[in-house]
Write a protein that binds this DNA or RNA. Structure first.
Lengths: 194, 194
DNA sequence: ACGTAACGATAACATATGTTATCAAGTTCA
DNA sequence: TGAACTTGATAACATATGTTATCGTTACGT
């Protein structure tokens, strides 16, 4: 969220910069859990290098909700703001370097910013955008077949398919990894018209 | 959104009340479209009587996203805030009485409120809650079978099943109306163990 | 360097769900 | 009142997707 703001409202950069020094820079291996489902989020996470996913657990298998890459920031927003247990686990996919900013500083920063002109408008817009994003994901999930969703991913966000193991992508698309294999092989055959 | 705020922050009631007089009260039949997919939302909708649904269209058939009843307020949030085309259509299900507050007044009200202490916190919390709601819907959509989702609806929000035609419920659950019939008949049989 | 785990493809089978068509009951409206 | 529409159930069939198991390849830790 924070970084999202930063990109969209560069005039506020001085405020962000004041808090850079409170970030804890951490080098972690793949499959490191940064926030566990059911725990309250206590820090804002910025990805300097690597990638992570957010997922929730269902019995043994899990469903991936979103992927994040370099220069993106994230947290379990609702958990962070409302002090409630997070619905998702956040876990690194690759060995990564992350910067963590404890919640107390984020709150301080928010307080400071809230006295700036136009901040409410900014918050509202950012919230609305985030909501649009989730809504679009949801709509696509319902409207499109897994095959269409895979093709969209392939054309619109190919870096995900390149970097993320296939079973995570399968769980993101909402199918079993076996079925994703089927989809891929079907698409591959479609191209071999010689 | 507005009414949601009102319930949660009664100390701000005086502000809301100032704008009541700008609301346009409208009596409309069932199947009246209050906001069309693709159009920009220009007003906040409050339901005095009746019920409405939000849905998006896919080819001919549509997918219901949410139901709203008496004393609830709604708008296509992202469209309203960011002046972008709405992803959903909003339509009455029953003959209803709705109150519409044009966007300009909502903006004015927001400006006024934004000077109040704690408003930013309130906005953030409300955004986070809304996000949690959609996330929960999404999670349930993925995690639960249509049958489980129907049973949840039955136990947690029975008024929906009582008042809303079955094919809307089917589209909300993400199945065909035929399949919802199957689910219902299966559940009915399960109860007849004599 | 070796053993183990992770990853991905494929086959065979089971199940869930969609589609189309038909029928019956209830509602609405001219 | 009667015709048209809405709502809901059911059957028959087609398709999509899940599950389990097997196999080969690659990556990784000790």
């Amino acid at each position: 969220m924070l970084f999202h703001f930063r990109n969209k409202f560069p005039q506020l950069n001085p405020f962000w910069d004041k808090y850079l020094k409170y970030q804890k820079r951490l080098e972690v291996p793949a499959k490191t859990i940064l926030l566990e489902e059911g725990k309250v989020s206590g820090q804002y996470i910025f990805i300097e290098k690597g990638c992570v996913r957010a997922f929730f657990n269902n019995n043994g298998d899990d469903k991936t909700v979103q992927f994040f890459f370099e220069n993106e920031g994230l947290t379990s927003f609702e958990s962070f703001i409302n002090n409630v247990p997070s619905l998702v686990t956040i876990e690194t996919i690759e060995p990564s370097i992350v910067c963590l900013l404890p919640k107390q500083y984020v709150s301080q920063l928010m307080d400071e910013l809230s006295r700036e002109q136009g901040f409410v408008q900014m918050i509202l817009q950012a919230s609305a955008s985030r909501q649009t994003h989730y809504m679009n994901e949801f709509v696509s999930f319902i409207r499109d077949t897994p095959e269409q969703r895979y093709q969209k991913l392939l054309s619109e966000r190919p870096h995900i398919i390149q970097r993320v193991p296939q079973h995570y992508i399968a769980s993101y698309l909402g199918v079993s990894s076996v079925h994703l294999s089927r989809i891929k092989s079907k698409l591959a055959k479609g191209k071999l018209h010689f």
